[in-house]
Design a binder for these strands. Sequence first.
DNA 1: CTGTTAGCGCCTTCAT
DNA 2: ATGAAGGCGCTAACAG
Lengths: 356, 356
Amino acid sequence: MSRQRELADQLGVSTATVSRALNDKPGVSTETRRRVVAAAHEMEYRPNAAARALTTATTRTVVFAVHRHQFPLGIDPFYPGIMRGLEETLAAEHYGVMLLTLSDADVQAGPASLPVFQEGRVDALVAAGPDIPPQFILAAASSSLPVILVDNALRETAIPTVTSDDSGGCRAATCHLVDVHGHTSIALLRGTPGWVSSDERAAGYCEAMAAAGLEPRVVSVEGTTIETGAEALTDVLESWPGVTAVVAVNDAMAIGAIRQARELGRRVPEDLAVVGFDDISWAALSDPPLTTVRVPIVQIGRRAGRVLLDHFDEVVTVSSRTTLATELVVRTSCGCAPPPLEGVAFDGVRQGSDQP
Amino acid sequence: MSRQRELADQLGVSTATVSRALNDKPGVSTETRRRVVAAAHEMEYRPNAAARALTTATTRTVVFAVHRHQFPLGIDPFYPGIMRGLEETLAAEHYGVMLLTLSDADVQAGPASLPVFQEGRVDALVAAGPDIPPQFILAAASSSLPVILVDNALRETAIPTVTSDDSGGCRAATCHLVDVHGHTSIALLRGTPGWVSSDERAAGYCEAMAAAGLEPRVVSVEGTTIETGAEALTDVLESWPGVTAVVAVNDAMAIGAIRQARELGRRVPEDLAVVGFDDISWAALSDPPLTTVRVPIVQIGRRAGRVLLDHFDEVVTVSSRTTLATELVVRTSCGCAPPPLEGVAFDGVRQGSDQP
DNA sequence: CTGTTAGCGCCTTCAT
DNA sequence: ATGAAGGCGCTAACAG
C-alpha cells in the first residue's frame, strides 16, 4: 500500500500537489494532474481512511440504525433488504455502512450515549423503521449529524425521508376489490396505530372506500403479526358477519386472517377475499397465493443512499421526501383466477434467486 | 465533545498520562488513574476514533462480508441474523460492524480490489457463507488481515471458524425417523455439493443410516430451493417408489418436497415423512408443521464476535473451530402427533416477537 | 511515575 | 501552479 509521500517522491512533486490532484481541487495544471492520477493508478495508491478522517473530520461511513427487535427477525428480511440497497449504492462511492441495532435502553438513552456517535465514527445516520422514537431522531438531527429516515417519517421537520407509497398501494388494493370483484363490504385489518406506514395504508383504504361511496370499517389490533391478523379477523366477523373482503396492512396479518377465516368455516377467496401488503417471500407460496402490494425494499435503501451521496456532494436540498411506487401483485386470494400455466414462481427463496 | 488536551489541562497533567490512564497502560499511579478516569467520565471525554486509528493502525471496526445474492433475500434472514449477533457482542466493546455485500465481480477480483480493505478501514474480516471462494478467503488471510469464517470452513488452514453442528443435527433427524417412527427407507435430498454445511448434513445422514444398518440413498440437485426440493423428490419417487421418508438439507427443500409429494398423490406424513433443516420462521407455519433441526443463527454471530474480541485482546490461539449445537425440533411432518393444545406458536413473525 | 517529543498520513493555509 | 509548514487527536519512545 503506497503512501502519498512515495507517490510525490516518485513524481518529483509535493504531497500537496498530489492531494490536490487526486481530490479534484483547483491549483494543479492539467498535465500535472494527469501524471499524478496515472501514477496513483499505477502504484495502486489508496488514501488511508484514518488519516483522511482525522484531517477532514469526515469518515465516509454511514450508520444504519434499526431497533434490535426488528432487524433480522421474522418472516421476511425487510430491514436487511433496505440495508443491502443502501450498501450497494454507497459502496460504489467508497462509502461504508455500519450496522447499529438499538436496544430499548439505547433508544431511551439517545444517540449521545452511543459510542459510534461519540467517537465520531460516522457522517450520517439512516434511521429505519417507525419504532425509533422521534425524540431519538430529533436529538441526532440537532447534533449536526445528517439524518435520513426510511420506512418512517416525522411531521413538521425537514428531515429527509424515503418511504414507499403506502396509501397509494392500499388504495389500489381496495379499488381492485371494488372494481374488479364488485365487493362492497370491505374491512381493513390494521395493526399498531401511530406507525407511519400503517397509518398511510389505512388512509389509502379509507380514500378508496370513500371514492367508491362505501363506508369504511377499520379494526385495529396491537401488533401486525399472524396472530393479530387472526384476532382482527375474528373481531370483524363477529361485528360484521356480512363482510365479504378484507384488506390487511401487511402480509403476516393477511395470512393470519386466512387461517382464521378457514378455522371459522369461511372459504378463501370464495366466501372472503383477502389482500395483504408487502409481498414478502411467502405471499406467493401461501394457500391460496396472496394478492398483495409489493414494496420496493431494496430500492428504498438505494434511494436513501443516493440522497446521502447528494448531501455529501453538497448538493443543496431544501427538503427531500421520496415516495417510491408500490405495485399491486394480483394472485388468487382476492378471487382472481390463477395464472394458466406454471403456477406460482417460487422466487425469493434463501439460497435461491436474486431480486431485481 | 471534549478532547484529551482539555482533560489534561483540567487535571494539570500531560496528555500522555491521560492516554495511559484511560487505556489501562502501566506507568500511572493508582491515584492519578482514578482522577483521570473520574474527570473523563465527568467531562464526557470520548477518544476520537480517527485519531486513534491513525496512531494505532487499528480501527475497531470489523467487516461482515457475504455474497450479495445471499444477503437479505428469501425465505429467512439467515445471514442478517448472524450479522445481528455479531453486532450485538462487538458493539458492547465499542467495535463497529460494517456490511460488505460482494458481487460476482468483487469475488473474482479478490479482497485487494475492495476499497474497504485498501483504505485500511477494518481490523478483521468475517466471511459468511459457502459461496465466498477459498481463493478470496486465502488472499485476505495472507494479507495479514485476521479472517474468521461463519457458515463455512476451509480444510487445511488455521482460519478460525464458527459453524453449527450440521452433521450431528442431520444424524439426530435421521435417527428420529429410524428410532421413533421405524422407517427403513429413508432418502436424503441434498443440494449443491461442495457447500460445507450441505456436505456435513449429508455426512450426518450417512452416519446415522450406517449406524442403523441401512443403506443410504442420496439425491443431489443443483441449489437448495423449494423448486429443487420438489425436483429432488420427483427423482426419489421415480427411482425408489418404496421410499417412506426423506430428510432434506434445508427447510426450503423440505417444503418443496412436501408440495411435490402431494402433487404426486402422497400424503405427508402418512405416506411420506419429511424433515427439514434450519428451522426458518415458516417451518412452524407450513402444512403440516415441519419437523426440522434448529440452527442457532444469532448465536453463531455472537460467538464469532467473541472469537474476534479475544483475538484483539491478544489472547493467543493456535486454532479455533467452534461448532454450535443444533436442536431437533419435532413437529408433525415426521409423523409425530401434534401437541395437545394451542397448536403452533406463530413466533418469528416480522414486527413480531423477539428471539432469544 | 510523569512529562516532553515525535510522528501516524493527509489536507490546507500561506508563501513563492 | 506549486512547495513548505503546520496541525487534526492520539499513542509511543525517550527522558527525567
